[in-house]
Amino acid sequence: MSGAVPEPTPDTLPFWEAAGRGVLSIQRCIDCAAHFFYPRDHCPTCLGDRVEWTEVSGRATLHTYLICHDPAPGFENDVPYVIAIVELEEGPRMMSNIVGVEPDPELLPLDLPLEVVFEERNSVVLPFFRPAGPA
């Protein structure tokens, strides 16, 4: 797959640098004791700035998805592909693609356990998710 290239901003750069190292890192508010996503320079719940980057488990569940039959530019060779909302074990949700499994609804029940896997697209390392292996 190729497709659109994200352009990091100062507040999101740590996410992308971690992804480049194969690490899923999101922020946590120390005062709220809660993770959040997308990246910001403050906590969107209490608006405080005691936030820290934390490496998260990469375990997630398949919250909801659709199977794209009308590809975005750069994805013409990949249809059909799964655009999913995954729910991280730590709480926040992210958009990603589901890899390592055929894009078949029978194989993709909601709440399916997933694990993160990193792949490079267009010189940018992105976090994808695949069905979790045996624990």
């Binding site: 659109a4 990091p8 919250h63 958009m95 990603s96 693609n97």
Partner: peptide, 24 residues
């Protein structure tokens, strides 16, 4: 935020996003 955290995963306009909650 759309450009960084959604479009890299192949979104193409409203049909690829707005119905995301239907299966749920």
């Amino acid at each position: 935020m759309h450009g960084q955290f959604e479009r890299p995963f192949g979104t193409k306009g409203p049909p690829s996003m707005l119905p995301l909650g239907v299966l749920r």
